[in-house]
Amino acid sequence: MSIQVKFFASLREKIGKAEVELATASNAGDAWAQATDNAPRPDNVLVAINLDYAKFDSVVKDGDEVAFFPPVTGG
């Protein structure tokens, strides 16, 4: 098992990758740090764990999917 990290839209272009696989991560903030090699985190970045909005201190478990993305602009 592992943790899948995904980046979307402008954040994907900024970070330069769409997906990263991590062996472990304690929370979403830790997943960001590992997946981006400690890149600074823009204030407006949103995070979802297993398709639900979460916080950066939300716990991440083995098998989780963690997604980072900019403010949504649909509609």
Partner: peptide
């Protein structure tokens, strides 16, 4: 979770917020 990227003669731009 949708994101718009607009195109005009100057290039491509992500819409930053609604």
């Amino acid at each position: 979770p949708f994101w718009k990227q607009e195109f005009n003669p100057e290039g491509a731009h992500w819409v930053e917020e609604n």
